[in-house]
Each structure stands twice: as C-alpha cells, then as structure tokens.
C-alpha cells in the first residue's frame, strides 16, 4: 500500500514562521521576567524570612477575638454598607445622563459623544482608592469622602455598560413614538427604558457588589468604613481583632455576591 511513497516524510507541528513567532514571544516573556527579578528591590533576608513571618502572623491571629465584633466593628461594617449603597445610587444617578450623551443613537452630536466618553474613561482609569485620596483632600477624612469616591469610580463602569445597552436597544419602538409626536422625555421613558431596564438593574447590582468589596478598603486612606477599624487594629498589632474584622469582611462580601447572583438570575 505504501510502496510508491517516499520512505520518510517530515512532519512538524508548526510552520517556520509560527515557530519563529513562538520563540520570539517566549523570549520576550522570559526576558521581562528576568529583568523584573534582577532589578526589583527585594531584600533577601525578608524573602528568606517570609514563610516564618507569615506563619507567626497567622498564629497571632488565632483565635479571632469575636467578642470585639459588637459594637465597634459592627458599626463600621454598617457604615461600609451605607458607603457602598449610597455611592452606588449616586454613581448610577450621575452615570445616566452621561450614558445618554455617550450613546450614539440618543445623542447625535459627535463632540458630546466624545466628551461623555472621555468622562467615562477618566472615571474608570482612576482607582477608587485614588478617588478616595482626592475626596479626602476635598471633604476631609470621613465617610462622605468614601461615598463620593465610590460614586465617581462607579460612573465610568455603569456609564460604559449602560451606554452599550442603550445602543443595543431596538430603534423601532422609539421611531413609532416619534411618529406619534411623543416628546423626548416620553420617547425615552416608553421607548428606551423598557428595553434597557433589565440590563440597568443588572449593571447597578453588579456594581453594588463590587462597591461592597471596594468600600472595605477606603478606610485605609481615611475615607470611612471598616477599613478605618482595620487600619487601627493593624497599627496597634491587635491581631485577634484583625482576624475578626477580616472574617466580617469576608462574610459580607460572600453574602453580597450570593445575593446579587440570586437577584440577577431572577431578573434575567
């Protein structure tokens, strides 16, 4: 059956060009890794000591001082949830007009589209901790700064997704309303809103979930919430309390995630 065939045929997995590209990419990855390892300032003694130090810390954290939870940690936790929720509401409220301006099927002015997109990108590029630093400088330390930090970080996230949802809305119902002479507000409320509504609630809930996580750290820069209590406990080396606070954060974050997943599943 194979009498007429050449004795050996070559088989290689990749063509020459593909192999060259693969070697190049591997080389680039390894080179950047080598660069990072060689130039990063890591003190060897710290590195050698690390496992022991971590074990020591974990031993100090055990058992968690659960009695410490009520009232001080509890109050801070409630404050954190308020920051997250109020920040989300404020962020969503600010995001709606910007999203409308950014959606090309609603706002036909290219310049306004660009301005809105710029606002959304700037909001997203600055992390909530940096927003918190800025608002601490503006409002002074406290939960007000945290709330605004959360809100301003949320604008970009909510605005971007909302604008995309609006752009995906079918033009038919809006045109029908326009043909019947409905004013702009009416067209939005009866034409666009019903189509965007499920996405809107989904986005808002999703962001709230993220905000619960993020608001837990704002206190580290003085913007209120449970982070303040955590920072204090760490600075005073009260490790059993630190463990309690971490457990509380973990529990709230997990519950928030489960809650949001459940509600979203019902919405969609």
């Amino acid at each position: 059956m194979s009498a007429t065939l050449p004795l050996h045929r070559e088989w290689v997995r990749h063509s020459f060009g593909e192999r060259l590209l693969r070697y190049f990419l591997w080389l680039a990855a390894i080179a950047s890794l080598v660069w990072a390892v060689r130039s990063i300032e890591i003190i060897p003694e710290f590195l050698a000591d690390a496992p022991e130090q971590m074990a020591d810390l974990l031993i100090r954290m055990w058992p968690p001082d659960l009695g410490h939870y009520y009232p001080s940690v509890h109050a801070a936790m409630i404050e954190t949830l308020h920051i997250a929720s109020l920040g989300t509401v404020l962020g969503v409220a600010l995001a709606i007009p910007i999203a409308l301006l950014a959606a090309r099927n609603i706002c036909r002015n290219v310049l306004l589209n660009a301005v809105a997109q710029f606002l959304l990108v700037s909001s997203r590029s600055v992390n909530s901790l940096v927003w918190a630093l800025i608002f601490v400088a503006v409002f002074g330390p406290g939960p007000a700064a945290g709330t605004f930090a959360i809100a301003f970080r949320s604008i970009g996230f909510v605005g971007k997704l909302l604008a995309e949802a609006i752009e995906e809305a079918a033009p038919g119902p809006v045109e029908a309303l326009e043909a019947s002479g409905a004013p702009w507000g009416h067209r939005m409320l009866k034409g666009i809103w019903p189509q965007v509504q499920p996405a809107f609630w989904g986005i808002a809930l999703f962001r709230w979930d993220i905000n619960v996580r993020e608001s837990a750290v704002l206190g580290l820069v003085g913007a209120g919430g449970i982070g303040v209590v955590l920072d204090d406990a760490i600075n005073f080396f009260q490790w059993e309390r630190v463990a309690t606070i971490l457990l509380a954060i973990l529990a709230v974050v997990v519950v928030a995630e489960i809650l949001v997943t459940r509600i979203r599943a019902k919405l969609i």
Binding site: L129, R213, E214, A216, V217, L220, L230, D231, I234, L246, I249, L250, V253, V254, E257
Partner: peptide, 9 residues
Amino acid sequence: SLHYVIVAI
C-alpha cells in the same frame, strides 16, 4: 473575596 489592598497591608 479579600481585596488586594487588604492582603497587601
């Protein structure tokens, strides 16, 4: 679930 800044601290 733990925010990376908390882990960092």
